[in-house]
Design a protein around this nucleic acid. Structure first.
Lengths: 222, 222
DNA sequence: CGATCAATCTAACGTCTGTTAGATTGATCG
DNA sequence: CGATCAATCTAACAGACGTTAGATTGATCG
């Protein structure tokens, strides 16, 4: 006769996921991975931590089965182990924003371009983008754009934006987005665009938030 | 000039929520609270832990703003600070079930009545319950039923079920539910009902899971 | 008032966790 | 083959956490 697992055994397993989500660095890595598969080196650079520390945190995430790995020569690429992980991150972040006032305050203080948030609904924005009434630009690194981006969005990495201003129509409203509400790249983009006479706004959504409410995501590579 | 909070400050706040979800006992308390407001004494009894330990864990949950308190005489009642907390618990549990094989295996092993899971969709079950084609019974304690239950469900606490078998029609299919997939009460109910000649099945949903997919919840007290 | 009881507070303990830094593995490439 | 580089492993430390048990608060009630 097999010993039946106890009830607390079930909660212990769920707590494994909770533990994985209990470190700020790991959450930052998760959000970066939500932008697409990346090697450890890139992750440690983008999260601004030592590669050995990044490796340790990624090991913890892997043991909680939230991420998976793929070897490619010298590089080991990490990716989320499913779209539900990205959904979990969004739910967790939204719950934090809902209940922690300090977080909402901090978010406001960090915005260098207040009042730049596009007030439109996701659906109507999608419609306008389709009709060409607005230009939606993705200011993340090209690799992240290729891994998945909003429909009708053009890749316009923040680093190259200044050089490529001429590619944008001066008479059309521009809406920028980046990795999500915690990412400041779209904010920087709006600042730059406005300084050059463009009509620009941002949305706080990243691909995770967009996908979390059931809207489609496009990929460029096959 | 005010010092702007850094980016990692944002993740630290989200990690506060993650930390709160990183302990098995706290998760158990959260699930109990998802059934409705309860005093510490009840929580510690139902989670089978010392009241002082329960109090410590509840303090951690309160500091993460996941629960709130209300004083009523000698008793301090705890409740979830919003429906999104219950939603977060469901999302966390589902992610764990999706990615942790050990958890799925343990769940199967713990069921004393396998193959008792009702295969119907939530919507069609709701429809049948409305028409009286099935009897839906809520086998949780009465207080939890009163705090919120599935539409058309009858309160039939597990402890009183045996005495009240006569109240149930012998020719009608019965569907039992309890606190959720981790709760064994509905399983016990099915066992008891079948032993007495009834046609009985269970659903793994509790009110949290039911509400999480947008279906309505009824309350009895005003 | 003093007794009772729910709940929290405090101190103590062993354990776990995040971080750092050095050593090691494993694949690539000249 | 040795050099290089990505990534992991290991050891070590300080700090945080879960648990236990005794002391304390705060409300009720005879």
């Amino acid at each position: 006769m097999k010993a039946k697992p106890t009830k607390s055994y079930l909660y212990e397993h769920v707590a494994r996921i909770g533990k994985a989500l209990s470190s700020p660095k790991r959450l930052e890595l998760l959000e970066l991975l939500a932008q697409g598969e990346k090697p450890v080196e890139t992750l440690s650079a983008q999260a601004d931590i030592d590669m050995r520390l990044a490796s340790a945190h990624l090991k913890a995430l892997r043991e909680a089965r939230l991420v998976e790995t793929r070897r490619d020569g010298k590089y080991i690429h990490y990716r989320l182990s499913g779209p539900d992980v990205s959904q979990l991150w969004v739910t967790l972040r939204e719950t934090a924003e809902e209940h922690l006032v300090e977080l909402r305050v901090a978010l406001e203080q960090m915005a260098s371009e207040p009042d730049s948030l596009c007030s439109e609904s996701r659906e109507s924005l999608l419609q306008k983008a389709k009709q060409g009434d607005v230009i939606v630009i993705d200011v993340r690194p090209p690799a992240e754009y290729e891994a998945g981006h909003l429909p009708f969005a053009r890749s316009m990495p923040l680093g190259e934006l200044e050089k490529r201003l001429a590619d944008l129509p001066a008479d059309c409203a521009i809406v920028a987005y980046c990795r999500g509400p915690f990412c400041l790249m779209s904010d920087e983009a709006v600042k730059l665009l406005r300084a050059n006479g463009f009509t620009a706004q941002k949305i706080s959504d990243g691909v995770s938030e967009w996908a979390a409410c059931g809207l489609p995501i496009e990929t460029s590579k096959n």
